[in-house]
Amino acid sequence: MPEPEPMNEAERLATLQLLGEASEEERERLQALLDDDGELAGEQNGLEALTKRLQTAIPDEEFALPDNVLAALEQDRKEVLEEANALADPKKIIPFSRTQIVSFAIAAAVVFGLFLQFLPDGQNSNVMIASHAVALEMARNYPPIVSKGVTDTESLEHHRTLISHLDQLRESGDSEKLLEILDALPDSAQELPEFKRLRKEAIESAER
């Protein structure tokens, strides 16, 4: 951008006067200069007329802001402000903080635990179905009784597991399934005291 030609003091004062920014002292000094310099005075008169014209040539309308434009600007401002706040605080972009996520997980675990706690026994279906199926299969494949009860380690483990499944079914109150499994046992195994006791309890439960 080229520098303008430098001004002398008279031109500087005259310009300040044109722009309405001359102090009282500057106006007096300018007047003295204009009195001595007819050419400068003539130029000043012409420029004063020009500045007046510039001022009055501006359309004198009120230019009121239309309501619909204001509403649009205001709605947009709210959205922009939200965006600005999100950009300024990245944590707000993540819906939940780490602490909140941990809290939610704990709360969910507690609720699920309570759910299981209060779930009616007979409706804990997945566990019961699996237990029933396993127990039925184990009853059908019950190892042969050699003497009093089972003796070898493998057979003993089979016996204990089956008893465990049958206990679960007994606790669930499903006497029908319990009896079905006991019926699937070989005759020799049905004489064992544990199975006799379970059968007795299942029949009593069914009668109730």
Binding site: P4, E5, P6, T15, L19, E43, L47, L50
Partner: peptide
């Protein structure tokens, strides 16, 4: 000031 004066002239 100088730009304004030259501009007005």
């Amino acid at each position: 000031l100088s730009h304004l004066r030259r501009g007005l002239i």
